[in-house]
Amino acid sequence: MMDMSNTEPLHSSATIVKVDQDTSRSARVIIRLARPSTERLITAATLLIILGLWYLATHYQWVPGLFVPSPLSVWRALVEMQQTGYQGHTLFEHLASSMYRIVTGLGMALVTAVPLGLLMGVNSKIRAIFDPLIEFYRPLPPLAYYTLLVLWLGIDNTSKIMLLFLAAFPPLCVSAAQAVKGVDPVLIRAARTLGANAIQVFLYIVLPGSLPELFTGLRIAVGVTFSVLVAAEMVAASSGIGWIVLDAGKFLRSDVIFVGIIVMGLTGLLLDKLVRKLEQLATPWRSCG
Protein backbone atom coordinates (compact mmCIF):
# COMPACT_ATOMS: atom_id res chain seq x y z
CA MET A 1 0.00 0.00 0.00
CA MET A 2 1.35 3.33 -0.89
CA ASP A 3 2.22 5.69 1.87
CA MET A 4 0.14 8.76 1.26
CA SER A 5 0.85 10.50 4.50
CA ASN A 6 4.34 11.66 3.72
CA THR A 7 3.00 15.08 2.94
CA GLU A 8 2.76 17.31 5.97
CA PRO A 9 0.41 20.22 6.32
CA LEU A 10 2.03 23.61 6.48
CA HIS A 11 2.53 25.14 9.87
CA SER A 12 3.80 28.52 10.83
CA SER A 13 3.87 30.00 14.26
CA ALA A 14 6.36 32.22 15.93
CA THR A 15 6.67 31.40 19.58
CA ILE A 16 9.76 32.17 21.51
CA VAL A 17 9.35 29.19 23.76
CA LYS A 18 10.82 25.99 22.43
CA VAL A 19 8.42 23.24 23.16
CA ASP A 20 8.67 19.76 21.83
CA GLN A 21 5.98 17.51 20.44
CA ASP A 22 5.54 15.77 23.76
CA THR A 23 4.21 18.80 25.59
CA SER A 24 0.43 18.61 25.77
CA ARG A 25 -1.57 20.99 23.64
CA SER A 26 -3.13 22.83 26.55
CA ALA A 27 0.24 23.30 28.19
CA ARG A 28 1.57 24.80 25.01
CA VAL A 29 -1.29 27.30 24.85
CA ILE A 30 -0.74 28.38 28.43
CA ILE A 31 2.96 28.90 27.90
CA ARG A 32 2.29 31.00 24.83
CA LEU A 33 -0.04 33.31 26.75
CA ALA A 34 2.05 33.63 29.89
CA ARG A 35 5.31 34.59 28.22
CA PRO A 36 4.67 37.77 26.21
CA SER A 37 6.54 38.08 22.97
CA THR A 38 9.52 40.41 22.72
CA GLU A 39 7.50 42.76 20.54
CA ARG A 40 4.86 43.27 23.19
CA LEU A 41 7.49 44.06 25.79
CA ILE A 42 9.06 46.64 23.52
CA THR A 43 5.69 48.33 22.95
CA ALA A 44 4.98 48.45 26.66
CA ALA A 45 8.40 49.87 27.37
CA THR A 46 8.01 52.56 24.70
CA LEU A 47 4.67 53.66 26.15
CA LEU A 48 6.13 53.88 29.62
CA ILE A 49 9.05 55.94 28.36
CA ILE A 50 6.72 58.37 26.62
CA LEU A 51 4.61 58.67 29.73
CA GLY A 52 7.71 59.27 31.78
CA LEU A 53 9.02 61.94 29.43
CA TRP A 54 5.65 63.63 29.46
CA TYR A 55 5.63 63.74 33.22
CA LEU A 56 9.17 65.07 33.40
CA ALA A 57 8.56 67.67 30.73
CA THR A 58 5.70 69.17 32.67
CA HIS A 59 7.26 68.72 36.07
CA TYR A 60 10.43 70.54 35.12
CA GLN A 61 8.60 72.96 32.87
CA TRP A 62 10.59 72.16 29.78
CA VAL A 63 7.54 73.38 27.90
CA PRO A 64 4.99 75.90 29.14
CA GLY A 65 2.04 74.36 30.96
CA LEU A 66 -0.30 75.90 28.42
CA PHE A 67 1.24 73.94 25.56
CA VAL A 68 1.55 70.59 27.31
CA PRO A 69 -0.59 69.98 30.38
CA SER A 70 0.74 67.58 32.98
CA PRO A 71 -0.46 63.98 32.94
CA LEU A 72 -2.11 64.55 36.27
CA SER A 73 -4.11 67.56 35.08
CA VAL A 74 -5.22 65.59 32.04
CA TRP A 75 -6.34 62.77 34.30
CA ARG A 76 -8.21 65.19 36.52
CA ALA A 77 -9.90 66.77 33.55
CA LEU A 78 -10.95 63.33 32.35
CA VAL A 79 -12.44 62.42 35.70
CA GLU A 80 -14.26 65.73 35.92
CA MET A 81 -15.59 65.40 32.42
CA GLN A 82 -17.02 62.04 33.24
CA GLN A 83 -18.37 62.88 36.67
CA THR A 84 -19.68 66.40 36.29
CA GLY A 85 -19.68 66.53 32.54
CA TYR A 86 -18.31 68.93 29.95
CA GLN A 87 -20.83 71.55 28.85
CA GLY A 88 -23.82 69.49 29.79
CA HIS A 89 -22.79 65.97 28.85
CA THR A 90 -20.49 63.42 30.39
CA LEU A 91 -17.43 62.34 28.46
CA PHE A 92 -19.14 59.08 27.74
CA GLU A 93 -22.20 60.84 26.34
CA HIS A 94 -20.01 62.95 24.08
CA LEU A 95 -18.25 59.85 22.87
CA ALA A 96 -21.58 58.10 22.31
CA SER A 97 -22.75 61.09 20.30
CA SER A 98 -19.73 60.87 18.02
CA MET A 99 -19.95 57.11 17.78
CA TYR A 100 -23.56 57.34 16.76
CA ARG A 101 -22.60 59.64 13.90
CA ILE A 102 -19.71 57.45 12.80
CA VAL A 103 -21.59 54.17 13.01
CA THR A 104 -24.59 55.54 11.15
CA GLY A 105 -22.45 57.10 8.43
CA LEU A 106 -20.33 53.96 8.11
CA GLY A 107 -23.36 51.70 8.17
CA MET A 108 -25.03 53.64 5.38
CA ALA A 109 -21.84 53.53 3.36
CA LEU A 110 -21.45 49.79 3.91
CA VAL A 111 -24.89 48.92 2.61
CA THR A 112 -24.57 51.18 -0.43
CA ALA A 113 -20.90 51.23 -1.37
CA VAL A 114 -20.20 47.52 -1.05
CA PRO A 115 -23.02 46.28 -3.28
CA LEU A 116 -22.29 49.04 -5.77
CA GLY A 117 -18.59 48.23 -5.73
CA LEU A 118 -19.26 44.54 -6.23
CA LEU A 119 -21.52 45.37 -9.16
CA MET A 120 -18.88 47.67 -10.57
CA GLY A 121 -16.35 44.88 -10.34
CA VAL A 122 -18.62 42.50 -12.15
CA ASN A 123 -20.05 44.84 -14.78
CA SER A 124 -17.82 47.24 -16.65
CA LYS A 125 -20.70 49.40 -17.83
CA ILE A 126 -21.80 50.13 -14.30
CA ARG A 127 -18.21 50.86 -13.50
CA ALA A 128 -18.04 53.33 -16.36
CA ILE A 129 -21.02 55.23 -14.93
CA PHE A 130 -19.93 55.55 -11.33
CA ASP A 131 -16.18 55.49 -11.45
CA PRO A 132 -15.65 59.08 -12.68
CA LEU A 133 -18.05 60.47 -10.03
CA ILE A 134 -16.33 58.68 -7.21
CA GLU A 135 -12.82 59.42 -8.41
CA PHE A 136 -13.72 63.11 -8.71
CA TYR A 137 -14.94 63.77 -5.23
CA ARG A 138 -12.70 61.30 -3.46
CA PRO A 139 -9.61 63.56 -3.26
CA LEU A 140 -11.63 66.59 -2.13
CA PRO A 141 -11.02 67.50 1.50
CA PRO A 142 -14.27 67.08 3.41
CA LEU A 143 -14.17 70.58 4.83
CA ALA A 144 -14.38 71.91 1.29
CA TYR A 145 -17.84 70.56 0.67
CA TYR A 146 -19.03 70.40 4.23
CA THR A 147 -20.44 73.92 4.26
CA LEU A 148 -22.48 72.99 1.18
CA LEU A 149 -23.85 70.00 3.03
CA VAL A 150 -24.86 72.14 5.98
CA LEU A 151 -26.51 74.54 3.58
CA TRP A 152 -28.48 71.78 1.94
CA LEU A 153 -29.17 69.49 4.88
CA GLY A 154 -29.23 71.78 7.86
CA ILE A 155 -27.36 71.97 11.10
CA ASP A 156 -28.57 68.76 12.72
CA ASN A 157 -26.96 65.35 12.67
CA THR A 158 -28.10 64.77 9.08
CA SER A 159 -25.38 66.90 7.50
CA LYS A 160 -22.74 65.45 9.80
CA ILE A 161 -23.72 61.87 9.10
CA MET A 162 -23.86 62.66 5.40
CA LEU A 163 -20.30 63.97 5.53
CA LEU A 164 -19.10 60.82 7.25
CA PHE A 165 -21.04 58.73 4.75
CA LEU A 166 -19.38 60.51 1.83
CA ALA A 167 -15.98 60.06 3.42
CA ALA A 168 -16.47 56.32 3.96
CA PHE A 169 -17.99 55.62 0.57
CA PRO A 170 -14.97 55.66 -1.78
CA PRO A 171 -12.65 53.30 0.12
CA LEU A 172 -15.45 50.79 0.54
CA CYS A 173 -16.62 51.02 -3.05
CA VAL A 174 -13.18 50.90 -4.60
CA SER A 175 -12.01 48.00 -2.46
CA ALA A 176 -15.17 46.06 -3.30
CA ALA A 177 -14.58 46.58 -7.02
CA GLN A 178 -10.90 45.64 -6.71
CA ALA A 179 -11.78 42.64 -4.62
CA VAL A 180 -14.02 41.27 -7.33
CA LYS A 181 -11.35 41.77 -9.95
CA GLY A 182 -8.85 40.12 -7.67
CA VAL A 183 -10.69 36.84 -7.44
CA ASP A 184 -8.59 34.24 -9.20
CA PRO A 185 -10.27 33.42 -12.53
CA VAL A 186 -9.26 29.78 -12.12
CA LEU A 187 -11.61 29.55 -9.16
CA ILE A 188 -14.44 30.89 -11.26
CA ARG A 189 -13.65 28.42 -14.02
CA ALA A 190 -13.48 25.57 -11.55
CA ALA A 191 -16.88 26.52 -10.16
CA ARG A 192 -18.38 26.58 -13.63
CA THR A 193 -17.06 23.12 -14.41
CA LEU A 194 -18.77 22.02 -11.24
CA GLY A 195 -22.09 23.24 -12.58
CA ALA A 196 -22.39 26.63 -10.92
CA ASN A 197 -24.42 29.28 -12.78
CA ALA A 198 -23.59 32.99 -12.76
CA ILE A 199 -25.46 33.74 -9.54
CA GLN A 200 -23.97 30.77 -7.77
CA VAL A 201 -20.51 31.81 -8.92
CA PHE A 202 -21.16 35.25 -7.44
CA LEU A 203 -22.48 33.95 -4.13
CA TYR A 204 -20.06 31.12 -3.49
CA ILE A 205 -16.91 32.27 -5.22
CA VAL A 206 -16.81 35.99 -5.86
CA LEU A 207 -18.30 37.03 -2.55
CA PRO A 208 -16.15 34.94 -0.20
CA GLY A 209 -13.14 35.62 -2.41
CA SER A 210 -13.73 39.34 -2.02
CA LEU A 211 -14.02 39.30 1.75
CA PRO A 212 -10.34 39.82 2.64
CA GLU A 213 -9.99 42.90 0.49
CA LEU A 214 -13.38 44.16 1.63
CA PHE A 215 -12.16 44.12 5.17
CA THR A 216 -9.08 46.07 4.19
CA GLY A 217 -11.39 48.64 2.67
CA LEU A 218 -13.44 48.66 5.85
CA ARG A 219 -10.43 49.37 8.00
CA ILE A 220 -9.48 52.24 5.74
CA ALA A 221 -13.04 53.56 5.81
CA VAL A 222 -13.10 53.49 9.60
CA GLY A 223 -9.86 55.44 9.70
CA VAL A 224 -11.14 58.00 7.24
CA THR A 225 -14.44 58.61 9.02
CA PHE A 226 -12.57 59.06 12.21
CA SER A 227 -10.35 61.73 10.83
CA VAL A 228 -13.31 63.49 9.24
CA LEU A 229 -15.25 63.40 12.49
CA VAL A 230 -13.66 66.51 13.87
CA ALA A 231 -14.52 68.42 10.70
CA ALA A 232 -18.07 67.15 10.94
CA GLU A 233 -18.38 68.46 14.47
CA MET A 234 -17.03 71.87 13.63
CA VAL A 235 -20.27 73.50 12.61
CA ALA A 236 -23.29 73.65 14.86
CA ALA A 237 -22.54 70.80 17.17
CA SER A 238 -22.89 70.91 20.92
CA SER A 239 -21.69 67.43 21.67
CA GLY A 240 -19.20 64.93 20.40
CA ILE A 241 -15.62 64.11 21.11
CA GLY A 242 -14.36 66.17 18.18
CA TRP A 243 -16.50 69.10 19.26
CA ILE A 244 -14.97 68.94 22.73
CA VAL A 245 -11.52 69.44 21.26
CA LEU A 246 -12.65 72.41 19.18
CA ASP A 247 -14.61 74.00 21.98
CA ALA A 248 -11.86 73.58 24.53
CA GLY A 249 -9.50 75.27 22.10
CA LYS A 250 -11.55 78.44 22.27
CA PHE A 251 -10.94 78.58 25.98
CA LEU A 252 -7.36 77.36 25.93
CA ARG A 253 -8.26 74.27 27.95
CA SER A 254 -5.33 72.22 26.77
CA ASP A 255 -6.01 69.60 29.44
CA VAL A 256 -9.43 68.97 27.93
CA ILE A 257 -7.92 69.00 24.45
CA PHE A 258 -5.52 66.27 25.51
CA VAL A 259 -8.35 64.23 26.98
CA GLY A 260 -10.27 64.55 23.73
CA ILE A 261 -7.33 63.60 21.56
CA ILE A 262 -6.33 60.64 23.71
CA VAL A 263 -9.90 59.36 23.82
CA MET A 264 -10.19 59.75 20.06
CA GLY A 265 -6.96 57.86 19.53
CA LEU A 266 -7.89 55.01 21.85
CA THR A 267 -11.35 54.71 20.34
CA GLY A 268 -9.90 54.59 16.85
CA LEU A 269 -7.53 51.87 17.96
CA LEU A 270 -10.33 49.86 19.49
CA LEU A 271 -12.48 50.18 16.41
CA ASP A 272 -9.63 48.97 14.25
CA LYS A 273 -9.05 46.00 16.51
CA LEU A 274 -12.77 45.24 16.36
CA VAL A 275 -12.71 45.21 12.59
CA ARG A 276 -9.66 42.96 12.62
CA LYS A 277 -11.47 40.56 14.92
CA LEU A 278 -14.50 40.59 12.66
CA GLU A 279 -12.20 39.87 9.74
CA GLN A 280 -10.73 36.90 11.57
CA LEU A 281 -14.17 35.54 12.27
CA ALA A 282 -15.41 36.05 8.74
CA THR A 283 -12.32 34.72 7.00
CA PRO A 284 -11.18 31.84 9.19
CA TRP A 285 -9.27 30.22 6.36
CA ARG A 286 -6.65 32.93 6.30
CA SER A 287 -5.38 32.63 9.80
CA CYS A 288 -4.69 28.91 9.79
CA GLY A 289 -1.76 27.05 8.38
Binding site: V150, G154, A236, S238, W243
Partner: peptide, 23 residues
Protein backbone atom coordinates in the same frame (compact mmCIF):
# COMPACT_ATOMS: atom_id res chain seq x y z
CA UNK B 1 -29.92 77.21 29.97
CA UNK B 2 -30.61 73.51 29.58
CA UNK B 3 -34.15 74.29 28.56
CA UNK B 4 -32.83 76.23 25.59
CA UNK B 5 -30.98 74.55 22.73
CA UNK B 6 -27.83 76.63 22.42
CA UNK B 7 -25.81 75.91 19.30
CA UNK B 8 -22.23 76.99 18.63
CA UNK B 9 -22.16 78.84 15.31
CA UNK B 10 -20.25 81.70 13.78
CA UNK B 11 -22.26 84.66 12.41
CA UNK B 12 -22.12 83.51 8.78
CA UNK B 13 -23.16 79.96 9.63
CA UNK B 14 -25.92 81.35 11.81
CA UNK B 15 -27.23 83.36 8.88
CA UNK B 16 -27.30 80.27 6.68
CA UNK B 17 -29.07 78.32 9.39
CA UNK B 18 -31.56 81.13 9.85
CA UNK B 19 -32.39 81.17 6.16
CA UNK B 20 -32.91 77.43 6.27
CA UNK B 21 -35.27 77.86 9.21
CA UNK B 22 -33.05 75.71 11.42
CA UNK B 23 -32.79 78.22 14.24
Amino acid sequence: PRSVTIIDMGPVDALAAWLRNDI
